[in-house]
Design a protein around this nucleic acid. Structure first.
Length: 889
RNA sequence: AGGCGCGUAACUCAGCGGGAGAGUGUCACCUUGACAUGGUGGAAGUCGGCGGUUCGAAACCGCCCGCGCCUACCA
């Protein structure tokens, strides 16, 4: 695998540029990301949330795909049949808008081209620009099976869409009807409820006087949209509202028109809002529409699809809806109907694609009856076939599903899956077929016409988990990889997408589309603000990757991905994690100095750890623990925990302690000691590389490639399995030695002893076992604390004129030959004593409390007693040191 | 209006019933045979407030104060 000429000394610091490019190429060339489908292996599959084909990688994508890639790489290394399906979404309105804008620069509209030519133009655009986001995902190292890339408009997926539509129609779950929908006057299309975004806006509330037809009085109504009054077909009041009970037979003379409209009684009206009277415009308001239905009020549309007033608006015809509003208000005022204008903040619905104010309007649309589908989805979540992480989303999910309305799936645009429905122009028969018909199925006429509407983009993405695997064919992929293992996506498309996948998957596959759903937070700036171009606080992952390297970005995102919290991303943190990558790099560089010429089999020494010196047993114990913790964290989607466990282990255990500790052995003339050190060192380094590879694939693969021996690529190596090496006794012993070392270093630092100055130290400890242990490690301790000599005894003369440090029941003394700053030393001891006394007081309080002794579990009581004894011993030592200090002073 | 979430060291956050933690920053000292993108040591917190449950609360419950987000048919 490795060529001789590739072997090189590792550079002094990690330079990612060439490394990243190189490995992207090799992973691809070696087919490492290709899904395997071997018999008898567990399978792990993920489908990517398909980014819009118009998309450009933003930090949300970066987070989402890092998380997926971490899991996918982890499971691939675990030996599972692993599939990650990549692809993009045709993004109906968004893509059409992009191409329309392009046409606009040529002074054309899509109507100039006509439907077919326009669609061709969109395909051209896609061929040219549609690969952008895919290439950016590749650059991140996303280990998708790129040969299986799908597009929601490609042939296979379009077939699935058509099949689903036809089946749902034949089952009676798709219907066509004239209903009120959200209409975008700019996009000229209907929008689903969740495609409308609500934003609080400052508006006005207009109070208008509606006189009775018989001139006997009037009623005042309030509205934020006075122009819609032209379409009013009634006034509604609450049936129990005494103020209006006499109006049953009185008509209303609608101002500015010559129409008379009835008063109806409806429970929907809030008695205490305004005057308790509501104007009813069934054609332009969802609630009014429903009131209208209940009372058989006529539906009168006064606007066209551009949001311009139509003939029904009388003299206002031709005015834009907002101009009309002004004019209507003027006229009402001049004719004395306007009572009052009040400032009023309220939520205004806007198109999620173009932010145009949405106009609720009745029109002929296609709908899915979602209730039966939604019930199945809810059931699957309730009985645990689908788990949602973090748990907090269950409530939101259920309440949304309980209130779900039929889904409007038709869109009056051109780019998308055209609805497979034909109408016979002769007999009016409606045909919905999976194969294009050429004649009417009823009268045989060939004078038939296909529906011009296309389907909501989310209709095709709802099928994504099975359509990408070849449905409706029963493919091997479906057998092995469906249901997928986990869906990782942002919470904001829980309903747009996740819920609909559940419905479609359960309905057509009779099985959930994924077993787990992990909903991650949105990435915000370091102050918690939404990133936006206008605020200028956008963190661009492409810039980050160039500046800090892809691994640093991936590690940062992984470390930030705690469940259920918004992610505040701070560029400084990315820099910090880049230092970590460099730290790992240098640790490897150091290791290479010692193992470069060795045979890879030197790691065999770990097979009998009990024969190894203590420090190696210690690092192997810690390694086993780390493997266990990382695996568990990844299995439970605790990405941040996985990252921090690794960070802590690599930096603070492997580098800070282990590498420093074994230097002596590595340079030793004793071959056994040296080879043991080399072997364990190489083993632990290999394990670390494997452990972190899913998070930081590039740097680990690079280091791996220069390690001794012929080795397959890291990306397809086996993920570490924890051996039975955890050893509490070993860890306690090393902990004690570390305490001693820290104590001596502390004395040196506090006493301002120059780091290179060699000094003597004494340790007194009554515990035989401990003193013996320390005896064995005198040389290691001395070299790590730069001692001239270290004397250990169970009892003996306490050196005078010495700085002191108390650790457990040990007294550590460093004689300073008149250099002891008595005052400083006294303060230090006092601080120490205060600290001990404080905790001791707490513990004594507990142990003196009968209720505590009676109620607390015995092991807790024991633990507290142990702590008490330890603290008392330590307090004794401190007191003694203080006494001696007083003698000197 | 309802729902959800968050307030822990200067900053960003972890911990979510048994001795207050990490990273960054900060201070002091240090180019010791991988790393100054480094090492060693230190300082730093009434865990938003008030009550309650408990032998024991940063954690559980209630209320309050601040801050986000989502949903909603008060026109």
């Amino acid at each position: 695998m490795k060529n001789r000429d590739e072997q090189k000394t590792l550079a002094k610091s990690y330079e990612f540029d060439n490394v990243e490019e190189k490995w992207l190429q090799r992973w691809t060339d070696s087919g490492s990301f290709r899904a395997t489908m071997e018999e008898g292996k567990p399978s792990f599959s993920v489908v990517i949330p398909p980014p819009n084909v118009t998309g450009v990688l933003h930090v949300g994508h970066a987070l989402n795909n890092t998380m997926q890639d971490v899991l996918v790489r982890y499971h691939r290394m675990c030996g599972d049949n692993t599939l990650w399906v990549p692809g993009t979404d045709h993004a109906g309105i968004a893509t059409q808008n992009v191409v329309e804008r392009q046409l606009a620069t040529e002074g054309k509209t899509r109507h100039d081209l006509g439907r077919e030519a326009f669609i061709e133009r969109v395909w051209d655009w896609r061929k040219e620009k549609g690969g952008t986001i895919v290439n950016q995902l590749k650059r991140m190292g996303a280990s998708c099976d790129w040969e299986r890339e799908r597009f929601t408009m490609d042939e296979g997926l379009s077939r699935s869409v058509r099949e689903v539509f036809v089946r749902l129609y034949k089952e009676g779950l798709i219907y066509k009807g004239d209903y009120i929908v959200n209409w975008c006057p700019r996009c000229h299309t209907a929008l689903a409820d969740d495609e409308v975004e609500h934003e609080d806006k400052k508006g006005k509330l207009y109070h208008i006087r509606y006189p009775f037809a018989d001139g006997s009085g009037d009623v005042v109504v309030a509205t934020t949209r006075p122009e819609t009054m032209l379409g009013d077909t009634g006034v509604a009041v609450h049936p129990d509202d005494d103020r209006y009970s006499h109006l049953a037979d009185v008509g209303i003379k609608l101002p500015l028109t010559d129409r008379t409209i009835p008063v109806v009684f409806d429970h929907h009206v809030q008695k205490d809002f305004g005057t308790g009277a509501l104007k009813v415009t069934p054609a332009h308001d969802r609630d009014d529409y429903e009131i209208g239905l209940r009372h058989s009020l006529p539906i009168m549309k006064v606007m066209d699809e551009h949001g311009v007033m139509n003939d029904k608006a009388g003299k206002y015809a031709g005015l834009d809806r907002f101009d009309c509003r002004k004019k209507v208000v003027e006229d009402l005022e001049s004719q004395g109907f306007l009572v009052e204008i009040e400032d009023y903040d309220h939520a205004v619905g806007q198109c999620y694609r173009c932010a145009t104010v949405v106009e609720p309007t009745t029109s002929l649309q296609w709908f899915v009856s979602v209730r039966p589908l939604a019930d199945k989805a809810v059931e699957a979540v309730r009985d645990g076939r689908i788990n949602i992480y973090p748990k907090t989303w269950y409530n939101t999910f259920y309440s949304w599903m309980d209130n779900i309305r039929d889904w409007c799936i038709s869109r009056q645009i051109w780019w998308g899956h055209r609805i497979p429905a034909w109408t016979c122009k002769d007999c009016g028969e409606l045909m919905v077929e999976s194969v294009d018909p050429d004649a009417c199925s009823k009268c045989g006429s060939s004078n038939i016409e296909q529906e011009t509407d296309v389907l909501d983009t989310w209709f095709s993405s709802a099928l994504w988990p099975f359509s990408t695997m070849g449905w409706p064919e029963n493919t091997k992929e479906l057998q092995i990889f469906y249901p997928t293992s986990v869906l990782i996506t942002s919470f904001d498309i829980l309903f747009f997408w996740v819920a609909r996948m559940m419905m479609m998957g359960l309905h057509f596959m009779d099985e959930v589309p994924f077993k787990d759903v992990y909903l991650h937070a949105l990435v915000r700036d370091k102050h918690g603000k939404k990133m936006s171009k206008s605020t200028g606080n956008v963190i661009d992952p492409l810039v980050i990757m160039s500046q800090y390297g892809t691994d640093a970005m991936r590690f940062t995102l992984t470390a930030f991905a705690a469940q259920g919290r918004e992610i505040k991303l701070d560029e400084e943190r990315i820099e910090g994690y880049r230092f970590f990558i460099n730290k790992l790099w240098n640790a490897a560089r150091f290791a290479m100095m010692h193992v470069e010429e060795c045979d890879a089999s030197i790691t065999d020494v770990v097979n009998s750890p009990e024969k190894l010196p203590l420090i190696h047993q210690w690092i192997l114990s810690r390694t086993a623990k780390t493997i266990t913790d990382v695996r568990r964290a990844l299995d439970e989607y605790r990405f941040n925990d996985a990252a921090s466990v690794i960070y802590q282990f690599v930096w603070h255990e492997f580098c800070d302690w282990y590498l420093e500790w074994i230097k002596a052995d590595l340079f030793s003339k004793d071959e056994t000691l040296r080879d043991q050190a080399r072997g364990v060192l190489l083993y632990v380094l290999e394990t670390i590389l494997k452990l972190i590879h899913p998070i930081t694939p590039f740097v680990t693969e690079e280091i791996w490639s220069v390690l001794p021996g012929d080795r397959p690529l890291l990306v397809t190596s086996e993920y570490p399995v924890a051996e039975d090496w955890q050893n509490e006794n070993v860890e306690n012993q090393v902990e004690l030695l570390m305490g001693v070392i820290t104590g001596i270093r502390n004395i040196r630092a506090e006493a301002d002893v120059h780091p290179s100055a060699k000094i003597d130290a004494f340790i007194l400890c009554a515990d035989m076992e401990k003193t013996e242990l320390i005896q064995v490690f005198v040389s290691a301790i001395s070299s790590m604390t730069r001692l001239e000599s270290l004397t250990v005894a169970t009892e003996g003369e306490k050196p005078s004129d010495a700085a002191t440090y108390i650790y457990q029941d040990l007294e550590i003394y460093v004689p300073l030959k008149g250099l002891v700053d008595v005052e400083k030393e006294r303060e230090k001891l006092e601080r120490e004593r205060n600290k001990i006394e404080k905790s001791l007081k707490q513990i004594n309080g507990k142990l003196g409390n009968k209720k505590f002794l009676a109620n607390a579990p015995p092991e807790i009581v024991e633990k507290e007693k142990g702590k008490q004894a330890e603290l008392e011993a330590k307090l004794g030592k401190v007191a003694e040191a203080e006494r001696r200090l007083a003698e000197i002073g």
